[in-house]
Design a protein around this nucleic acid. Structure first.
Length: 477
RNA sequence: UCCCUAGUAGCUCAGCUGGUUAGAGCACAUGACUGUUAAUCAUGGGGUCCCUGGUUCGAGCCCAGGCUGGGGAGCCA
């Protein structure tokens, strides 16, 4: 514990009449008398009141927006209207100056795009303070949810020798001298001289490893960084993001849906219970930002109401085949408003998913039973022989937030799928072996952590919910 | 990667049909005021109009190419 109380503590305990020290950063200095200070412990700021007669002019000059100060004085009930308590300052120390001509964060509206370029300082703003406090609470909620249910936290490798994860383009990991690559007799690059004696990459998914662990420990989850070298330039994709992947032995696709729905609701409820003030701030922010937008682009429900709606309503559960029927029978389809064709066998396009979630059901939807051809090789083939026990959870505003499946546990069927998907057996021999030695039904899913944070905070761009976003052509900071 | 769109002061933006010395609010500096709430009032400083080239008597404005940001699509979480 720091020797001084945080601003959050001061507001919780309100030790009026006692001598306290506040340390934090100056937001504004009004009237040569009132310093608004934030220390990040809460969205709230505390007002430090000074009598300028009592302080050196040099000190007063250094009370600038962005400066770090330590103020000691008596905590009093505020005489002003804007706040309940304030510190009547007796001693003031400037811990770190901030040249106002250079400090870019002002007490005014900044665009998120501008703040993205100041990622090292944007933590100081209300918005990013709220977002990153929520990010913490959600991470904690995830661990608590799984821990309370007897799951074990599995650390899947970040550097992987497997190139069959099948989830996307990978980043190569090497310590070969790129200016002078070793070659074999055929003139090819000799990867046997690389650090691991073979080609290695950053992981695109911990799922296969999680399956190995689940078939021994029962219920496990991973929660770690994941990397995709795809040239995706959207507000929903990152090259480096954090993913949660539970995997449960003996669960089928229905258990998997129950787990995913419980999980999402738990995390959202946890945020509502533990970060209410931050959510209220973000809700206000969203309402104000919406005023600048055309009416049809505004949120139909305020943030907190949206979150409570998800917590209090059953997710809609439909099959892919039913989804296609709904789309085909929609007036939207009959008026030819979809850009992409709708027929059984297509991969659902963003516009289709959005229609189902935002127009038709207006709540989270779980779609199961996708055509085998458009889903990954490890998903369990259904009795009909053409669909798999896959599930996607779609939420309004974000689209797909969770993708999962019951895994193919039957050795022979999995071998066939490997052939059909051109996955060499010797690349995943270890994965196949779990189906030879005591295989069992099991299921799991993957959740993009940043997408959950987007949904809970209402932030529209994924670059604003991770401290230092990694996207194509951008790895600043 | 494809489509659309934007780039003017530190920030957010305006800038007419191509026409004289490029504007506002905020921020900043100086002063006044002193229980303020993004305080207020007065005065002041501050510009590679994204870059390169072109058209023109004349380009912030028109044209071409590029760079960067944003939105959408694809891929996906």
């Amino acid at each position: 514990m720091p020797k001084h109380p945080s601003i959050a503590q001061l507001f919780n305990e309100k030790p009026v009449g006692t001598r306290v020290t506040v340390k934090g950063w100056v937001r504004t200095f009004r009237n040569d008398q009132f310093i608004t200070v934030t220390d990040g412990s809460t969205i709230k700021t505390i007002q430090v009141v000074i009598n300028k007669e009592n302080f050196e002019e040099d000190t007063l000059k250094k009370i600038q927006t962005g400066a770090c100060i330590s103020a000691t004085g008596t905590l009093e009930k505020s005489l002003g209207k804007g706040q309940e308590i304030e510190v009547v300052c007796e001693a003031l120390e400037i811990l770190g100056e901030s040249d106002p001509n250079e400090f870019p964060i002002q007490m005014k509206r900044h665009t998120l795009e501008f703040l993205r370029e100041k990622a090292h300082l944007r933590f100081r703003t209300n918005t990013f303070g709220a977002v990153f406090r929520l990010r913490h609470h959600l991470a904690f909620a995830i661990h608590k949810f799984f821990n309370d249910r007897g799951f074990f936290y599995l650390h899947s490798p970040i550097i992987t020798g497997s190139d069959a994860e099948g989830a996307g383009e990978m980043f190569r990991v090497t310590n070969l001298d790129l200016e002078n690559l070793p070659k074999n007799e055929k003139g090819e690059i000799d990867y046997s001289q690389d650090f691991f004696g073979k080609t290695t990459n950053l992981t695109v998914s911990g799922q296969l490893e999680a399956e190995l662990a689940a078939l021994a420990l029962g219920s496990v989850y991973t929660f770690g960084p994941t990397f995709r070298a795809e040239n995706s330039n959207t507000s929903r994709h990152l090259a480096e993001f954090w993913m949660i992947e539970p995997e449960v032995a003996f669960n089928d696709i229905h258990d998997n849906q129950d787990l995913a729905e419980d999980f999402l609701k738990y995390c959202i409820q946890y945020a509502l219970d533990h970060a209410r003030e931050d959510l209220e701030f973000l809700q206000e922010r969203e309402i104000n930002e919406d005023k600048l937008k055309p009416v049809d682009e505004r949120q139909s429900m305020p943030l907190i109401q949206r979150l409570e709606f998800v917590v209090n309503n059953q997710f809609e559960r439909i099959t892919y085949t039913e989804a296609i029927d709904i789309l085909l029978n929609s007036s939207h389809y009959k008026k030819k408003k979809f850009k992409f064709n709708v027929e059984w066998g297509i991969d659902l396009q963003s516009e289709h998913e959005r229609y189902l979630v935002e127009k038709h059901f207006q709540k989270p939807v779980i779609i199961t039973g996708y055509p085998a051809k458009i889903k990954a090789f490890y998903m369990r083939l259904n009795e009909d022989g053409k669909t798999v026990a896959a599930m996607d959870i779609l939420v309004p505003g974000i689209g797909e937030i969770i993708g999962g499946s019951q895994r193919e546990e039957r050795y022979e069927v999995l071998l066939e799928k490997c052939k059909a998907f051109n996955i060499p057996e010797d690349h995943i021999w270890w994965y196949l072996e779990t189906r030879k030695f005591g295989t069992c039904p099991h299921a799991g899913f993957g959740l993009g952590f940043e997408r959950l944070i987007m949904y809970v905070t209402g932030m529209q761009n994924i670059r604003d919910v991770i401290p230092f976003p990694r996207t194509p052509q951008n790895a600043e900071f």
